[in-house]
Amino acid sequence: MKMRGLYYSGLTILLFSAFLQLTQAQLQLGFYAKSCPNAEKIVKDFVDKHIPNAPSLAAALIRMHFHDCFVRGCDASILLNSTSPNSGEKDAIPNRTLRGFDFIDRIKSLLEAECPGVVSCADVVALATRDSIVVTGGPSWSVPTGRRDGRVSNRTEANNDIPAPTDNFTSLQTHFSNVGLDIIDLVLLSGAHTIGISHCTSFSRRLYNFTGAGDQDPALDSEYAANLKARKCKSLNDTTKVEMDPGSRNTFDLGYYSHVVKRRGLFQSDAALLTNNVTSSYIQQLLQGSENFFTEFAKSMEKMGRINVKTGTDGEIRKNCAVVN
């Protein structure tokens, strides 16, 4: 029996099944088949053309999609600019290093030229994320469409709702549970760290001041920590970029999990996956191949893409992804 199916109570299964049935009825594959037949091809062609020349954008897009869905659901609220007096999600601490906004805007402009006011920014993010991961050698997954764009973006909500790299296991589990995801989804979605980079400031406390006493996080491999100090993060406030999966940061593979079990994950949230028996065991199953990473990751991504979606007459279809109509 698959591990991801073992950790729900009967009530949770019933509630989440009802939730999925609702969103499945509202989202649908090929939603734009009549209203904008070339929509998904336009997205895919743009991604296929540009991501090979800038593969790091694949990591940026999946991070954007993740951060968007955890705040008010997958409604492209992450794309909205701040206005006076409202400070939007873009200005939240977890989002200040996000990239890829221009990439989404360029796709949206092509879709507006083809089918004005039809394709949502939220669907552009979901489709472009999937297509960019495929370009990096990762799995594909179904992206039912029909999402609509939210009109509200709030910095405080983003600061509170997005899992942090400093989170322990309890905090991570709470953040994921709040949006209907379980601890197996936590392991699988963390696997997106197999591509991309981090800034030293996201984890340098683990190297220099873990408990506030000038100490090092004992959960971090000491040899790896010494190497990071010597070559990358030479001070607490160093902003140097570091590969999250050294050696294959542009390739979607199991490398991230190999580093985690060697206690070489950069974040406390990476190390936290080893502090729970279920998640630690599941990582071993992924590495041994008894659970297929690509297949299971795809399931979790599709599940994440359904979080609190706006459909029907809820929200709007933004003409410009950065501002409400």
Rank of each mutant, 00 (worst) to 15 (best):
P85V: 06
R155G: 02
R231T: 15
I107V: 13
T170Q: 13
N154E: 02
L286C: 02
I183G: 01
F297Y: 15
G117L: 03
L172Y: 02
G312K: 05
S132A: 15
Q26T: 11
S280Q: 08
E157Y: 13
G88E: 05
A59H: 11
N209K: 03
F46G: 11
A230W: 00
E296T: 05
F267W: 07
F267G: 02
G5F: 13
S82M: 03
I162L: 01
A113D: 14
V124K: 08
A158I: 07
F70M: 14
T279H: 01
F203P: 01
P163I: 09
H50Q: 04
T194A: 05
G247Q: 09
S222I: 11
V323D: 01
V309D: 07
P52C: 03
L189G: 06
S171E: 13
H193Q: 14
D91P: 04
A59S: 15
R205D: 12
T279L: 08
T275R: 11
D48Y: 12
L14D: 06
D314F: 09
L29W: 00
Y282W: 09
F46I: 04
T166F: 08
G247T: 11
D91T: 14
S198P: 04
S300V: 12
P165T: 14
L111P: 10
G191D: 05
V143A: 06
L207F: 05
A213C: 00
G150S: 07
N81L: 12
Q268K: 11
N320Q: 10
R96I: 15
A25K: 13
P85C: 08
A226M: 07
S290T: 15
F101I: 09
T174F: 01
P165Q: 07
K319E: 11
A113W: 02
I162K: 04
R263W: 04
C115S: 10
L181M: 01
R99T: 12
E114D: 15
H175Q: 12
L20G: 04
G5Q: 09
N237V: 10
L181E: 07
R155A: 13
R130H: 03
E114K: 12
R4W: 06
A25H: 10
L15W: 02
S77D: 11
S258L: 00
N168L: 03
G315L: 10
T156E: 12
C121Q: 07
Q21I: 08
G5W: 07
A322R: 15
I283D: 00
C36F: 08
L29I: 09
P37W: 00
D182N: 14
F31W: 09
L61P: 07
G138M: 06
S35R: 08
V135H: 09
I51E: 00
D314Q: 15
H259M: 04
L15N: 10
A33P: 10
Y256C: 01
A25P: 02
P37A: 09
K49N: 05
V118I: 15
P144Y: 09
V242K: 12
A158S: 15
S120Q: 06
F169A: 01
N95F: 10
V134T: 13
R72H: 11
V134I: 15
F16Q: 14
M1T: 12
L20T: 04
P94G: 01
Y208F: 15
D75G: 02
R151F: 03
T166R: 09
N276F: 06
I183E: 11
D245F: 07
A113P: 00
I42C: 06
D105G: 14
L266N: 05
N159T: 10
Y8V: 02
T12P: 00
L22G: 03
Q268G: 06
L228G: 03
P139H: 08
